[in-house]
Design a binder for these strands. Sequence first.
DNA 1: GAGCACTGC
Length: 718
Amino acid sequence: MKINRKRKNEKDVEELEQSKKNLKIDHNKGIHKKKVTDKSKTNNDKQNPQKKNDKDSKQPSKNIDIPKTGNSKSHQIKSNNESFKKNSKKNTADSNLIEFRKELPIWQERNNLVQELKENDTIIIMGEMGSGKSTQTPQFLVEAGLITLKKGIIAISQPRRVAAISLASRVSHEFGTKLGQKVGYSVRFDDKTSHSTLMKYLTDGMLLRELLSDPLLLKYSTVILDEAHERTMRTDILFAMVKKAQETRKNSINQKGKKYEHLKIIIMSATLDAAKQFPVTINYSSEPQSDYLDAALTTTMQIHMDQPKGDILVFLPGQEDIEILEKLINDYGTSLPPDKLKVITCLLFAALPTEQQTKVFNLAPPGTRKIILATNIAETSITIRGVRYVVDTGKCKIRKFNAKIGMESLSIENVSKNSADQRLGRAGREAPGICYRLFTEDEYNKMEKDTEPEIKRCNLSSVILLLKALEIDDVLGFDYMDAPSRTLLKKALEHLYILKALNNQGKITELGKKMAEFPLEPSYARVLIASQELSCTREAIEIVSLLSVDSIFFSPQDQREHASDAKKKFMSPFGDLITFLNVLRSYETQKGNSEWCYQNFINRRNMKHVIDVRKQLIQLCTRMGIPTNSSCGNEYEIVLKCMLCGFFRNSAILQPTNNYRTVFSNQSVNIHPSSTLFNKKLEAVMYTELVLTSKPYMKHVSAIQSNWLYDTAPNIQE
DNA sequence: GAGCACTGC
């Protein structure tokens, strides 16, 4: 195993700069990194260190043996570490757990890793999925005595809450303690930590929240940022903030005139798990496909006719395509020759109710072949066994924010090379597989290497408010891993200014500080604060909670009309927001009865989330001195005026030509057909979201009066 | 008369 030793601590800043480049440019190259590989590879590397990079940049389809078990180093490590021995004695029944841990590729790096962290403040660990880096690293450090309640505990941040929870359960089991004691987790609505917690798995959003009250993260001696390669907006910001905390702790003294403990940072990033895979043959399209859906149908049925058993996974950009293809395949399936396997289709996308999602894990019954139609949820988040064939359209939906017109859109675009390779890998998890790419090799070569990071294409209002709350005044000159465009930044600053979260110097106001406390987009936070004066906090909290889910309704494809009839019962002439409020009232009268939900096409899972959010917001408001029992009753004009305090920019006036134009940017806009006010002609409307699909559509529309705008629009007229 | 990639506080 080749490890490039790092220089000492004083070079940290440079190291981090370098690491940023590593993360940004190439996961497989660069000097300052530690790579966790399987053993077969390790031995190879020892003999042929020069060949290492060549190997890593190979096509994932290359045939590489799965690592064999057995570890010559384990004896030495075991005898070297007394604390580990003690721990293992406590749980003789779980001795095979220790054996399991020893089999993990990262085990042999145990001593090196501890040593590296003693000598350096920042290290980067790169490893394949399943190398054990997320579960073992914290345990190694605790066992080596680097993490104690006195020195500070360790935080391991994760982009997804399920990952935080399941990692914590796994590790607490391995560590032989009850979940919530030595090992715990902290995610929204659920905290399983205690005063004795040493290893704390938490979502990146949670760690960002902690920064607000503890900017130097003094609770922690070490912070691990896991899955840093995913480049979510939150990990990007965390990376910079944690680094800043590290520098401050190194260069300043605390109130007692003492030096702070150094903050250790570990960045973890996954490489494609090619080394653990069976070979996958790639079949490219011989020519570009004009209709990916048609190509997907033809290819899938061709595989079914020609290839031996094994399930087929088809990657499509969205729900609509998935539902169309499902129908086409099932139609086709009825005309198959009787001697052929039957086909069964499984759908997989995030909006699908959980019970239906779990159906994909059922094995195909004898005599059938399972065809899974999925979005990129199956690329990383969910792994399905039994897949031997992957059909990749090479497309995905990407959310983009157009700062100039303040509009979001979801557009279908080509995936990155990395995504395509990840999709391909799904065919080779249990046996050799085949991947059919519905694009040419030339098209593949022209794809971007990685998906553009979120921070370069999304609405930045809440991120900028957070930075301002963290006393970062110069957000344009901030140390971003990838800097967003000036247009995006300026749009966010402007938005925060007109919400009065920032003053005309760009400094955060008292109001802005309060807004940053809420786990909400700034506009929604503004609404809650305004509700105090207007005495409608109860309704404001409820509406904001209702808007925190995608949809409180569900409409299965085959029952669309019934669903829209059911919706009519809740309809209010004030529009969608009050309609949502009516749904919540009825839901509570019915005590969340599942039969009632089903009959009224109410999404029960999402309603439960609404109730959770409401509870959290009530607690937060109470803590901030906003009375939460004030109510406007049925005088809905009041709560709509209150909503306008956050959304006055989102207003449109009916023109003599019978279409709507936005008040502040004079764009032509339309009421979305899903709105209860669709086809209604109203003097003025307010919406919470503007989306560009076939037309610019306003979503969540309410009826307002244009003279309300003069009362609520603040900084704009000043 | 339209549509909903995926996460998170």
